[in-house]
């Protein structure tokens, strides 16, 4: 098909804007029909942090309809530059594996079975144990009679996934209880 006068006038009226296939007499009907057959999905890219170790590699998560559908290393993060270790690369399966715990489980002292409990019950239980331990073990004075308010039977292990502010709050909370033994995951 040659560029006839009608199509030429159409072209001439388009200014220096981009040429279109339609102006050149190309029918896009077959391509549009092909496009209509396709099932096209949308997902959002969310940058997150690998939960496994203290390196804290960045990961891009693909989220579709509120659900994680894929993960990959973040190439713009200077530490991992898109690469991940075997565990990090399998991060997505952690969210889909049937082995994953989805509810809090509790095993009572000397028991050999796990019981399903609510988060509320768990928080109450943890708070109770902390309070009881502190009430029982808090050392008010040292051998010289100096006030120390020290709790040596509890230990805090910090996570590298906590930000500076979160670390500061956790640290102050432990100091408030008298906890003196603290360390960080990054050293392990």
């Amino acid at each position: 098909m040659k560029l006839d006068r009608r199509r030429f006038m159409k072209l001439a009226g388009s200014g220096a804007a981009c040429l279109s296939l339609g102006q050149l007499g190309v029918s896009l009907a077959p391509v549009k029909a092909y496009a209509a057959e396709m099932k096209i999905s949308g997902a959002k890219e969310v940058v997150t942090v690998c939960p496994f170790c203290s390196v804290s590699c960045h990961v891009i998560g693909y989220v579709k309809d509120g659900k994680l559908v894929n993960t990959e290393g973040d190439p713009d993060y200077p530490i991992n530059e898109g690469a991940l270790c075997a565990k990090g690369a399998a991060m997505f399966t952690m969210t889909t594996s049937h082995h994953r715990l989805q509810k809090p489980l509790y095993r009572a002292p000397y028991s050999d079975t796990w019981e399903e409990k609510s988060w509320e019950w768990m928080f109450d239980r943890i708070a109770r144990r902390i309070k009881d331990t502190r009430d029982k073990d808090l050392i008010l004075k040292n051998g010289k009679g100096d006030t120390v308010n020290r709790l040596e039977s509890m230990f805090l292990l910090g996570t590298s996934h906590a930000g500076n502010e979160e670390c500061a709050i956790a640290h102050q909370a432990m100091r408030g209880l008298g906890v003196v033994h603290m360390d960080h995951q990054a050293r392990i």
């Binding site: 890219e45 990959e72 190439p75 898109g82 690469a83």
Partner: peptide, 24 residues
């Protein structure tokens, strides 16, 4: 290590140069 790559490069519409750009 597994994976790697995935860095985004924009492809120039005129000169075909590919330059690095923030992925997200």
């Amino acid at each position: 290590l597994v994976g790697g790559g995935g860095k985004k490069f924009l492809h120039c519409s005129l000169c075909g140069h590919d330059w690095r750009f923030k992925r997200n």
